[in-house]
Write a protein that binds this DNA or RNA. Structure first.
Lengths: 106, 106
DNA sequence: AATTTGGGCAACTGATCGGTTGCGTATATA
DNA sequence: TATATACGCAACCGATCAGTTGCCCAAATT
């Protein structure tokens, strides 16, 4: 079982679930209504999301509300940081090039 | 074949390849030396990365240099945007709470 | 011209994935 | 107390995945 956050967001249904519960906590049944699939399938996705700590449960009677652990999402942002540095550098270089051309035209 | 960018970065080897070629373009053989796997396995990863346009080839004699299409990485950043909004809002709320407590103590 | 080297393509393999069906259990309702 | 509802767990299935092995072709080296 790999079960890391990158594997978790690889599935489109899982990304949709994440987007939904980011707004408000939801039960498996409520989530399943949003998809063309069974509750069990959704539950399996929730299990995977729980295992990599992207989601936490809150018991309320016989219902279980699943909520997004938004902080965990920052791990993706953190990984992206190294590439953001690169594309910002490239943008700066382009910016510099453009202003050099501008200067030459004067 | 799903072959979208999220599925592409789900594999740890693929993420490592991306990080390597982000710095400089590399050939499959050069890449394979960095991993405990065969050149063919790396080539397969490169094929997947190429299919979702995360990587482009540059032919140089009989060698093929693979280079990261850094712009494609922005798609992940774009998807993350919706969550960044949430965690920044939460941070602001926490910040506000802390300054309220500070005021009350005065 | 013969050999070596870089790398793609295809077939195969075991592992994992996403999904379904069936069942058990606990909470709520009649 | 009997029934309905919410949910998790386990077994199963076909599809896809990551990796290996074997082969071929083209460019470089001898």
């Amino acid at each position: 079982m790999r079960r890391d956050i990158f594997q978790a967001i690889a599935d489109p249904t899982r990304r949709a679930i994440i987007a939904l519960i980011a707004v408000q906590a939801m039960t498996p049944n409520a989530l399943a209504e949003h998809f063309d699939t069974t509750r069990q399938a959704v539950s399996k996705h929730l299990k995977i999301l729980t295992e990599c700590e992207l989601v936490k449960q809150e018991y309320q009677g016989r219902e279980i509300f699943y909520q997004l652990e938004i902080d965990k999402m920052k791990e993706i942002d953190k990984w992206l940081e190294q590439f953001r540095k690169i594309w910002e550098k490239r943008f700066d270089q382009l910016d510099q090039l453009l202003s050099t051309i501008k200067k030459q035209r004067k």
